[in-house]
Each structure stands twice: as structure tokens, then as C-alpha cells.
Amino acid sequence: MTDAAAVELAHEIFDPLAASYLERDGVDIGPMFGSEGLRIRGKVFAFVGYRGALVVKLPAERVDALDGTAGMERMVMRERAMREWMLVPASAGDRWDPLLAEAFAFVDSITP
């Protein structure tokens, strides 16, 4: 599957989930790593990455626990592992909804 096809598939999963968050106070869409991400009070908590994976911000300990499960992996940018960012492939699409909820709750709790 091409990256473009993977991103299209990811948006088929992500967009309906994102719509419910956009109804909440303080949630909008904004730029993040070249994509458009869901934000709470200006801080991104989830977006679709350029290869079609859901990218969520979670506590570092949770990322450690999930890394390697169901194809999920810690996000790496420019050879640097990102402590609090997890890539969740479309093949684990059934996990997107609960992980979005976790990401929202985490970023909401740390954002003034």
C-alpha cells in the first residue's frame, strides 16, 4: 500500500473519531509535524502521520508498555525516540478510539 493510500485509510478511521472530540470545549484542529492534529487548548494530542498511522501523545510509561504491541511503536524523528509519542498502525484500528481517549485525557490533564 502506498503512503497516500495508507493515509486515506487512516482518515477513514480517524475522521469520525475526531469529529466527536471537535464538539468538546477547547478542542480544535491545528498543525503538528506537517499534519493536522487534534488539540486541546492549543496542545496536540493526536494526528494521522504521513505514513497512515495514528500518532498519540501518552505518558512515557504508557508508551513504554505499548511499544511492540499489535504493531505499535514509539515515534522516532530524525533518529531520536520521542518519549511520549506512539504510532498506532491502521491494522490496530480497533485500538484507535480508546487510545485517542487516553491521549485526550493525558494532554488535557497537563495543559493549563
Score class of each variant (00 low, 15 high):
E79D: 15
M86F: 10
T2H: 08
G37Q: 04
L100M: 15
W96G: 04
A5W: 11
F106I: 05
S20K: 15
A70R: 14
M86E: 09
L66P: 09
S20V: 15
K43D: 07
G71S: 08
L87D: 02
V7A: 10
A90Q: 10
L9V: 12
P16G: 12
G49L: 03
E8Q: 15
A90M: 10
D3H: 13
I110E: 01
G34S: 09
S91R: 13
S20E: 15
D15F: 11
E8I: 10
D97E: 15
A103V: 03
M1K: 14
A90T: 12
G49N: 09
R24E: 11
A53K: 09
E8W: 06
M72I: 03
D15I: 11
G37M: 07
R83H: 13
G52T: 02
A70L: 14
L22T: 06
A18N: 02
F104G: 01
G71H: 12
E84I: 02
M86W: 07
H11D: 07
A81M: 14
P98W: 06
G37C: 11
R41G: 04
E36I: 11
W96T: 06
L22M: 02
L38I: 10
A18Y: 01
S91P: 07
T111S: 11
K57W: 02
G30Q: 11
A10T: 09
V44W: 05
F104Y: 14
D67F: 14
K57D: 03
M72G: 01
E73R: 15
M82S: 09
L38E: 06
K57R: 15
E12H: 00
V48P: 04
F47A: 04
I110Y: 00
L9M: 13
M77N: 11
P59W: 05
L54M: 04
R83Q: 11
L38P: 04
M32Q: 10
I13E: 01
L17E: 03
M1H: 13
M77Y: 13
E12D: 07
L66G: 07
R39E: 03
D3A: 15
F47D: 01
E23G: 00
I40D: 01
A92G: 12
V55K: 00
V56K: 01
E23S: 06
D28T: 10
P59L: 09
L54R: 00
G42L: 08
A70I: 04
R24H: 08
D15K: 14
A5R: 15
E8P: 02
A5I: 07
G30H: 04
P112I: 04
D28N: 14
G37F: 02
R51L: 12
G30C: 06
T111F: 00
A6E: 08
G68N: 11
V63D: 03
R78T: 01
R41H: 05
G30S: 12
A53P: 01
Y50T: 14
R74Q: 12
M82E: 04
G26W: 00
V63N: 07
V76R: 14
K57A: 07
T69G: 02
L9Q: 13
S91M: 02
A92Y: 06
Y50S: 14
V55Y: 06
G42H: 08
A60V: 10
A103G: 13
F104E: 08
W85M: 11
K57P: 00
L100K: 01
D28G: 13
R51N: 13
Y21I: 02
P89S: 07
L58Y: 04
A70W: 11
E102G: 00
D64W: 10
P16R: 11
D28M: 05
R95S: 12
A6R: 15
S109N: 07
